[in-house]
Design a protein around this nucleic acid. Structure first.
Length: 774
DNA sequence: CAGTGAGCGAGCTTCCGCTTGACTT
């Protein structure tokens, strides 16, 4: 056993470091936190100074036993978790759970994974920073109290299994409020007039475009203006040249990597992280969960060499970036290639593309500015009060643009700035064409996953390790959905002047399809309304920022962590109790009108399983009738007619073999029911007009598919079946599924083979979710 | 997943941050 045990957070890091340290050191990983609050209980003693009750996390039990054994055998244990709030707490938990002592353990930190940085760290050990640990504890306890008291309130007042928290609830709020802005937005239009010119002297035949400095609010005004230009004389009134520069973007952090991978490669946030994790594990890139834009000295040096040898020394400009994001803790470097001289790597296509993006971003961040020359030209018309304006841009020196340009989310495309011919004041121009086109204002864009992450980072909510999980949580809770909605076609009016003739034309444009955007659901809107009504302080966009200030005070030793929690918890808990007792069900109920057949009230609201329509009052004598809303319908927009239509189901179609055939719409879409069996109705059929003949066809098709599904059954034991599923053949014994080993032929299995397969634990399918029902 | 929604009531759900793994019926 080695004399020294070093514990870091990540196994990939452990492997690298072990290589630096020689055989007197064993390096192991804690895989993040090893202890936490029990997830089944509140685990905070609110009666006694909010004492948290920590336990070794269930999935870490084995690891902790092993580490404990190694620690006992070692002469010195080096706690080398990250240098931030969470890292300090990880060391503290390790110290306690491994039962270390002060004389046999030391705390060390380093920001770069280099041999010299680690050797230096070992020379300068320190003690665990108890104040920083206290700040983490305050963070942990606050989040637990908020999450575990608000969520149950939602279960009672809105719907079971919902959740609320300091981070996720604000993320939902952002999406709900953006949608409200979009609903309120009214589109207006104005006519923009663009003219295409050429120099009249014929020396330069290049054409260029210029826009008239005024927009017209009606077609009539635009037309009147253009008609007046038929015999106008156009002259260059002024030419102005200005030097300009563009600077590169800083190296990637988690959030900027997610944004660029989304803009340039179309990756979802979770996908980007999955690919980055692979690159990290294979040693291609540095750690991918970071808020730092910092590069190590070594990285800066190799970047410099790389740029010099590829592009020349005039392309080098070494820069030190400073983070702008709130609450950054900067325990790691920026995300960069481990070896910057590797321009490309082996791997899957998506790994290569992400690596390429990271390489370019890193290299370009250390390159010189691009030097530009902007030209603004004013063109006067003898028959117009204002000028036409053309602007051009010429790159004098490309600098970092040789490698990489950051993408933008800006959707309002402007006139592209290109090169302009050389002008002098007073030059005469020939008009080639003039066109006035109706342009519409656009509502603010809906968030994409990546632009939501950017907004969250700006507000300081969430951390690099939680952006992707938070976004998947709010989708899993069905507060928001990610959808692509096609744009709507709309008419655009144009007036064109060409060859001395005026023409009016109607063209069409698409309002712009929105790819993979986040939309709030009925439940998301309702939960947000509930939380805003009773807990607006926690949903406040500045809540996290203000508690972070408190955490800083605690970390500086100026305040006790449980004093802060006490100040927060008092009023918070009171509000929880009050809301519990005084407020009724929060169902978002809306009265749509009366059912013409029965004269009863028709409502829509959120029920236990989602949105439902209801005919009749709950407290009336005869039971109300219920029907679930369709997936594409919404509480806020559904009409009385649409709601009444939902009650057309279930509809009897007739009888087959003496049993009724009916059609209905369930939680998973429309279905045909016959003889207690269910048959899903595919999209090509319309459940509202489905005939008995069509229903029979659907049932036959299902039966046929089921027959094909069975590969093999056994006379001796009817519980054993070999079936064909989505992922190939599998074995079922008494409702339990088993994998069939790849080297066995499913069709040739004997009953004995099947029993053998079922006994081997290797073939047990892993359960992704704990089973809900008994 | 399972194709419901009365009423009763048992038992369950839930947070944020740190880290990977296992591999889908």
């Amino acid at each position: 056993m080695a004399k020294n045990l070093v514990i870091v957070e990540s196994p990939a890091k452990a492997k690298t470091i072990e290589g630096f340290l020689g055989k007197n050191y064993t390096v192991r990983s804690s895989f993040g936190h090893v202890a936490d609050l029990n997830s089944k209980k509140l685990s905070v003693d609110v009666e006694h100074d909010f004492e948290p009750q920590y336990e070794v996390s269930p999935d870490k039990k084995k690891l902790v036993t092993e580490l404990k054994k190694m620690a006992k055998a070692a002469e010195m244990v080096w706690l080398a978790s990250d240098e931030d709030r969470e890292g300090e707490a990880i060391s503290w938990h390790l110290f306690r759970t491994l039962k270390l002592t002060e004389d046999k353990s030391k705390r060390i930190v380093f920001h770069e994974i280099t041999k010299s940085a680690i050797l230096q760290a070992i020379e300068k050990p320190r003690k665990i920073d108890e104040n920083l640990v206290a700040a983490q504890q305050a963070r942990r306890v606050l989040d637990r109290l908020v999450g575990y008291q608000l969520s149950p309130l939602l279960w009672r007042k809105v719907k079971p299994s919902l959740s609320a928290g300091r981070v996720q609830s604000v993320a939902v709020r952002l999406i709900v409020e953006r949608e409200e802005e979009i609903k309120k937005f009214t589109t207006s239009s104005a006519f923009r007039t663009i003219a295409e010119f050429r120099l009249a002297d014929g020396k330069n035949t290049q054409t260029f475009k210029a826009e008239y400095a005024e927009r017209f609010d009606t077609l009539e005004k635009a037309k009147a203006f253009i008609e007046n230009q038929i015999d106008a004389v156009f002259t260059i009134a002024s030419v102005e040249k200005k030097p300009a520069k563009k600077s590169p973007a800083p190296p990637f952090t988690t959030s900027t990597l997610q944004q660029e991978a989304s803009r340039k490669l179309g990756y979802s946030v979770a996908n980007t992280m999955r690919i980055a994790q692979k690159l990290y594990e294979s040693g291609r890139i540095t750690y991918m969960r970071t808020d730092s834009v910092n590069l190590s000295k070594m990285a800066l040096n190799t970047a410099k060499q790389e740029i010099e040898s590829r592009f020349g020394s005039n392309y080098v400009k070494i820069r030190h970036y400073k983070t702008k994001s709130k609450g950054a803790q900067e325990a790691h470097e920026a995300i960069r290639p481990t070896y910057i001289n590797n321009i490309s790597i082996d791997g899957s296509a998506e790994e290569k593309r992400l690596y390429d993006l990271i390489w370019k971003r890193t290299i370009s961040s250390q390159m010189s500015d691009a030097q530009l020359e902007r030209t603004n030209v004013c063109i006067s018309s003898s028959k117009a009060p204002k000028d036409f304006i053309a602007s051009g841009e010429v790159i004098k020196f490309d600098g970092f643009l040789k490698v990489y340009l950051e993408g933008t989310d800006d959707e309002n495309g402007e006139l592209k700035r290109g090169m302009l011919p050389a002008f002098a004041k007073g030059d005469l121009l020939n008009l080639i064409e003039m066109q006035s086109t109706e342009r519409f204002t656009k509502h603010p864009p809906r968030y994409t996953e990546a632009s939501l992450v950017r907004k969250m980072e700006e507000l300081g909510i969430g951390r690099p390790s939680t952006y992707a999980p938070t976004i998947s949580t709010i989708q899993k809770r069905e507060y928001v959905v990610k959808e692509t909605r096609e744009g709507v076609k709309r008419k655009v009016q144009n007036v064109i002047l060409k060859n001395g003739k005026i023409e009016e034309k109607i063209t069409h444009e698409n309002t712009g399809s929105q790819k993979a955007r986040l939309f709030p659901t009925d439940i998301g809107v309702l939960v947000n309304r509930f939380l805003m009504q009773y807990f607006d302080d926690i949903l406040d966009y500045n809540f996290t920022a203000s508690v972070e200030k408190e955490f800083d005070e605690i970390a500086a030793g100026k305040k006790a962590w449980n004093k802060f929690i006490k100040e927060f918890y008092g009023p918070f808990h009171q509000k929880v109790e009050e809301t519990q007792e005084n407020s009724g069900k929060f169902s978002g109920e809306r009265l749509l009108g009366k059912d013409p057949k029965s004269g009863k009230n028709v409502y829509v609201k959120i029920g236990r399983y989602g949105a439902i329509a209801q005919i009749g009052d709950t407290d009336s004598e005869d039971k109300p009738r219920f029907a679930g809303l369709r997936k594409e319908q919404s509480l806020e927009t559904i009409t009385l007619q649409e709601a009444l239509k939902l009650f057309d189901f279930p509809r009897m179609l007739g009888e087959v073999d003496g049993e009724e055939v009916s059609v209905a719409i369930g939680r998973f879409g429309p279905y045909v029911k016959h003889n207690k069996l269910f048959y899903s109705i595919k999209k090509e059929y319309n459940p509202a007009s489905l005939t008995l003949e069509e229903a029979i066809r659907i049932m036959e098709a299902k039966k046929e598919a089921d027959r094909k599904k069975v590969i093999k059954t056994f006379e001796k034991d009817k519980d054993v079946k070999v079936l064909n599923g989505r992922y190939g053949a599998y074995l079922v014994i008494k409702k339990q599924n088993y994998k069939i080993p790849k080297d066995m032929d499913p069709a040739a299995l004997t009953l004995e083979d099947c029993y053998a397969i079922s006994k081997d634990p290797k073939n047990m399918p892993k359960k992704r979710y704990a089973r809900k029902k008994k």
